[in-house]
């Protein structure tokens, strides 16, 4: 009996090695997420000393929130634009950096810089860049051409464009790194064979590069989508959701409810919805990839 236990333990000894890491990771991710879901079923508000279970009340509140259609629309535009731009600009830059061009090493190092700058600093940089006063860098540029100063953040569309630009600027380096890594794993022979067959550059990109990069692109799409969906620092510091609610995205609503109105349960409800959105989008992406792979094979 004891030998049996010893054999089983020996067979599964890896559990003892990975358990601490698993417990740590779950403790820092799964526990807070599940606790957040639990809080969403209560009426916990930091302004009040007590709380109790109210079950789905907060979800009903969210579903009937008058601003929800606008915030969802903003979130869709924001996430969609950022993901498309981040991936396409990242792919373009990766394709350029994958070629043997002069200074490639230096450019690769410099390209990573926006990724290591904290989001709040990026927001302040863009705020300075697009400040409505004459001290704003863009307004200084306009004045050089004799054009009047603009108040960039007072227009809802311009505010959203600047916000998207700031987040894309930060996210592009990640796309470059991921896609450059993927490009370097594509065998040269494929391109050589295609060249012999008379394929154009566009055909090589369309039929060799992008299909080979698909797993990397998928990872990139998932990371960019969930990252953008959860982005709060840049929208908060750059536009604060304004003017009005024209740049308020779901993640910013969490901040406002949780830290300005102190309504922790409602903030957790919005966070739970974002968590579900993330899960659904990830499953959809994975299904799409699998379906296309099966079709290809």
């Amino acid at each position: 009996m004891s030998r049996q236990i010893a054999t089983t333990l020996q067979k599964h000894q890896y559990i003892f090695f990975i358990a601490p890491a698993v417990v740590l990771v779950l403790g820092l991710t799964a526990y807070p997420a599940l606790y957040g879901v639990l809080v969403s079923f209560t009426n916990l508000n930091f302004g009040y000393p007590t709380s109790k279970f109210v079950w789905f009340d907060n979800y009903v509140r969210l579903a009937t929130w008058p601003a929800l259609p606008q915030v969802l629309f903003n979130t869709g535009v924001f996430v969609g634009s950022v993901v498309v731009l981040q991936l396409s600009v990242g792919l373009l830059a990766a394709l350029l950096l994958n070629r043997a061009v002069f200074g490639r090493g230096l450019v690769r190092s410099v390209a990573i810089l926006p990724w290591v700058i904290p989001g709040i600093i990026i927001a302040l940089m863009f705020q300075q860049f697009f400040s409505g006063s004459r001290l704003g860098i863009m307004n200084t540029v306009l004045s050089v051409f004799g054009l009047p100063s603009r108040s960039w953040f007072s227009d809802p569309v311009e505010s959203m464009v600047v916000l998207i630009l700031a987040v894309v600027w930060r996210g592009v380096p990640l796309s470059i790194i991921l896609q450059l890594g993927g490009l370097q794993t594509i065998p040269r022979d494929l391109y050589e064979a295609a060249a012999i067959d008379g394929a154009s550059r566009w055909q090589m990109l369309r039929y060799i590069t992008i299909p080979s990069l698909r797993p990397i692109l998928l990872i990139n799409v998932i990371m960019a989508t969930s990252g953008t969906l959860n982005h709060v620092d840049i929208p908060l510091a750059l536009t604060g959701g304004g003017p009005g609610r024209s740049t308020e995205v779901l993640a910013l609503s969490i901040y406002k409810q949780g830290f300005e109105v102190l309504d922790a349960s409602y903030a957790s409800t919005i966070a739970t919805v974002i968590l579900l959105l993330n899960l659904v989008l990830t499953i959809v992406y994975l299904r799409l990839l699998r379906a296309r792979d099966e079709l290809a094979s």
Partner: peptide, 12 residues
């Protein structure tokens, strides 16, 4: 244009 500005944003 002040609709997106707090006190700090007015100072420049």
């Amino acid at each position: 244009e002040v609709s997106t500005m707090d006190e700090k944003a007015l100072r420049p």
